[in-house]
Design a binder for these strands. Structure first.
Lengths: 140, 140
DNA sequence: AACTCATGTAACATAAAAAGTTTCTTAAAA
DNA sequence: TTTTAAGAAACTTTTTATGTTACATGAGTT
């Protein structure tokens, strides 16, 4: 099953942006990620819509952080990128009146919902400045 | 992102098989699930390999339960069907020497691993006979 | 023995979605 | 006015689960 690595990639980019302290172009980010500038714009614009980055056109333009890293959590970025389910497991809805299907779906959903809540709670606890610590520690 | 609903579907089938108490053909299961008999064989054979169902060829043949429902857990079926990750979120491995990528991946993986363990633990607690209760309750 | 029914398996086709690409527009700075 | 960069639309490619076809194998029936 295909995986969505946009969260990992965008976090990576955001922390690098913090250290650069100047605008980065989509082209540069694309090279860094081994992808395409249009794909970068598509993804970064989701973060822009939520107010985590700014985009500036023209000479010297590009992407900058709109908030300090300690004001952004993993959950913020995760939510900006995807409203889709965290899980690769899906339920069925073909026999909605079948009590067996209902029982099966309830049992699975109960567990996935609890685990999903755990993930969101934990993502909310991690601010991006924590991810930068190891890096800055290495520099000093 | 595409979802794998085989767990839900196979649980549904197994509980029905328990109530039928006779062999069910791949063709019948395919009709029930709105899919193809070859797809059914592919999926059911994963359960056969792990000893949860039997397959019998020829007249009157088909699929039967190899164990009572109270000896099969959600985890058993889940494991039989997939060794793939539970999560739609993936990590990156393009800059394995980059401390930022490392920190990002560690942070995400820490959370997903804990949530994954929770799911497996909870799946292990649910035996399939519990899923049949609601149904039998309705019959009596 | 011949026939029918059912699984086993391989090879191929289809479908859906994410990712990549091309092309053009818009805006800002040099 | 030219260059640089994002915004956006339309299209192509790639990937992968699912579906399909065709044939082999084996078990029970006639």
């Amino acid at each position: 099953m295909r995986k969505d690595s946009r969260l990992s990639r965008m976090l990576h980019v955001l922390v690098h942006m913090h250290h650069l302290e100047q605008a980065v172009t989509s082209d540069n980010i694309a090279i860094m990620l081994g992808t395409n500038p249009v794909v970068v714009r598509r993804t970064m614009s989701l973060l822009r819509e939520q107010g985590y980055v700014n985009a500036v056109k023209g000479h010297g333009g590009g992407w900058t952080l709109a908030k300090p890293l300690h004001c952004i959590t993993l959950l913020d970025i995760h939510r900006s990128l995807s409203e889709a389910s965290l899980f690769t497991i899906g339920l069925t809805d073909e026999h909605t009146n079948c009590p067996i299907e209902k029982a099966v779906n309830l049992a699975i959903d109960d567990v996935l919902h609890e685990a999903g809540q755990l993930v969101l709670r934990r993502f909310a606890e991690v601010t991006l400045d924590k991810l930068a610590v190891e890096y800055t520690a290495k520099l000093s």
